[in-house]
Amino acid sequence: MCRWLAYSGSPVRLDELLYRPANSLVLQSKHARLGAETTNGDGFGVGWYGNVPTPGLFLSTEPAWNDRNLREIAAQLESGHVFAHIRASTGSAVQKTNCHPFRHGRWLWMHNGLIAGFPAVRRELTLAVDPLLFPEIQGSTDSEILFYLAVTFGLEADPVAAVARTVGLVEEVGRRHSVVNPIQMTVATTDGETTWAFRYSSEARSRSLFHSVDLSTLRHQYPDNPALHVLSDDARLVVSEPLGDLRGAWREVPESTCIVVHGGREELRPFTPVAPATAAADGVR
């Protein structure tokens, strides 16, 4: 499927995240260790926050390992909040509008997984998107539909509740179309200050997801490791798979969990989808 990383902390050059780690995201585009596919060569994208309100995007249909422009940009660009994604298509076209992250205002979104039986449920899910948001949908992926459903359900006000309602709708629609396990996902979204990441699947066998541990602890354990001195103490990473093999550096995000990262702190919360009938009974749009 795909691999991704979400970074927050002091500004860091992009190549420190994308190229330099032993199991870097660019390396994973050829040789993913924990993904459903070894190769993730159907394009990539990088989103970052700088000095303007709207995050920047660089998207390409080239495989990440073969894009000279990515290497040039990564060697120059610094940011304290970065989303990066390498894509393995589950059937939709290889085109820039299908590359993650997706953007709406200040918000970014990226996804690893799929909506099972998407051709059968696509129309109904698309029609559930707020009509005012519909013109913003540019591509043909299930991931982008998930994003705009979440925005429809209040992502900008309460991301956890919005994603819970989105997943609940996908499962309800899928099961009405005889899809046994409608959704598989690790999702990350951010407003440039806080990152929310979700690990969930209908069959409770979700794709891998990890978060980094406190760097000050690692520096104490490994004082001679130069890689640990590039990032600040408040730096945090949420990744599809660990970027290296340093013992104790990574913790797996449990099944059916949301991790919230803000200001160098992370909080893990149970994640449960909310069915449409439940949401309606609570008086939510």
Rank of each mutant, 00 (worst) to 15 (best):
T90V: 10
S256A: 15
V52F: 05
R33I: 10
F134Q: 15
R13C: 06
G168E: 12
S212C: 14
S178N: 13
R219Q: 09
A84Q: 06
Y200Q: 01
L14H: 07
S79E: 12
L246Q: 08
V230A: 07
Q28L: 04
D245P: 08
A197W: 04
V82H: 04
L127F: 09
D130A: 01
F147G: 01
R87Y: 11
W196R: 08
H111R: 07
L125V: 02
A188I: 02
S10F: 03
I145T: 14
V261E: 03
T186S: 10
L132W: 01
A235P: 06
E16P: 02
A128Q: 12
W109V: 06
L18F: 11
S60V: 08
Y7Q: 08
R123C: 01
C2I: 05
R103S: 12
E241P: 10
S143N: 06
T39L: 12
A275K: 04
R123K: 09
S8I: 11
N66W: 08
L237C: 03
K96R: 15
Q221L: 13
W4R: 04
Y222S: 01
Q221R: 15
V46K: 04
L246E: 08
L17I: 15
C258R: 03
R199E: 13
L77C: 08
T90I: 03
P182F: 03
T186F: 00
H81A: 12
E37S: 13
W250K: 03
A64H: 09
L146H: 07
Y200P: 02
V260E: 01
V82R: 02
D282Y: 02
A280N: 02
E193R: 15
S178V: 05
P55R: 11
A74M: 11
N98F: 06
G174I: 07
